[in-house]
Design a protein around this nucleic acid. Sequence first.
RNA 1: GCCCCCAUCGACUAGCGGCCCAGGUCACGGCCCUUUCAAGGCCGUAGCGCGGGUUCGAAUCCCGCUGGGGGCACCA
Length: 419
Amino acid sequence: MSVRVRMAPSPTGFLHIGGVRTFLFNWLFARGRGGECLLRIENTDTSREVAESVAQIERSLRWLGIDWDGETTFQLDRMGRAQEEARRLVAEGKAYEDEGAIRIRMPDEGVVGWEDAIKGRIEFPAAELEDLVLVRSDGRPTYNFASPLEDWLDGITHVIRGDDHVSNTPKQLVVLRALGAEPPVYAHVPNVFGGDGKKLSKRHGAVSVDEFRAAGYVPEALMNFLALLGWAPDGETTIMSREELIERFSLERVGSSPATFDYAKLDWMNGVYLRSFPPEEYADRLVAYLREQGYDWPEERIRAAAPLVQEKITRLGEFPAFAGFLFGDVEPDPSLLDSRILREAERALERVEPWRADAIEQALKALCDELGEKPRSVYPSIRVAVTGSRVSPGLYESLELLGRETALSRIRAAASVAA
RNA sequence: GCCCCCAUCGACUAGCGGCCCAGGUCACGGCCCUUUCAAGGCCGUAGCGCGGGUUCGAAUCCCGCUGGGGGCACCA
């Protein structure tokens, strides 16, 4: 039997990272088995749905590298079919009308249960189930009717969704049974928390895919990190390519307890990916990122700066603050400047030929010897004068890139304002 | 209130009765390297929620408790 799953976001604004993790599990599961992965928008409620948010959802998924088969479908499009099926159930005596709405009869004894692919056997006492509204009095189907109905019509074999749907499952199982449908395999993945044991939300940090993108995370890292939230191939492996993720993913190894989103670990992992890119690719990504964020800095200069920061920043978003001195003026803090050292540095640097990092290094080292000081006591002043900060990329490379003229004029200017 | 789910270092997890006085990764601490910051190397702190069982033997199985989460709509 070939596998078919579906990702079913509700079109309420942005794409939440917790939901993305669930979609990722669907996607990895399907792709790992040569199956299909559908994208279905769950909008039985017309008032809330917005075309724009659907477009945003699609854009976010694509950016992450999650694709889907066929056209995006809308739950609402099958309203007619839902009404038809509901009427059929009434005719068969399995449902009944109630003040203009149609309700299904729930069994009133025994249990309704299933073998959850992640949580194992789950059962609900039938007495807990109330006769569910299938179709509202205004004719629109409810979620708990439309969703299983569509799963059936679409031939969904595995419903992999959030934990919060566990209590909907018995209802949907009854609906499916009444419809005469073979129920799919259900797999309920635990929630994602933010540090305090509460559902991940804005107060914990970034939550939408767009925010992570804007902060300079790369999709490979985000995907790798998300995959490991609640799933592990073994106890050792942490860095895995998209292909490896697909190959190794399995529902059996998804844990049943909720996971906490650890931003620090994501940062670390993003750094691992950033450092692993070949220099040209790193530069490509950096340029694309800065363009996306609206920086109009010259591309050649960004490319030249890329190697200076690749080992040092963990998110592309750190680039402007870290290497911005290469693209605009600086305002060094006078109290961090030493005019004597700066004048000596100016003198030493004037004669450097050619203006390259290695020659600059020689000159500066020689200066240190001359002054009888350690680099650590003479460099800070120069660094601050030239980069505007005590933290920066390598000093020699920074000076080279900046050019002799700019470098010297910054040093001169700094010397004159030094405290 | 009722129903359902969950429970290993601060975090993600490995562990599916003996190989575990519990392993890996992040974070944290120390040392080394070092022009700052990173990166890298080495070392370290830290955990099976509690109480009963079952068993020769339990982190692993069972029961209870406690704690956390989710759900009880003509929302999705």
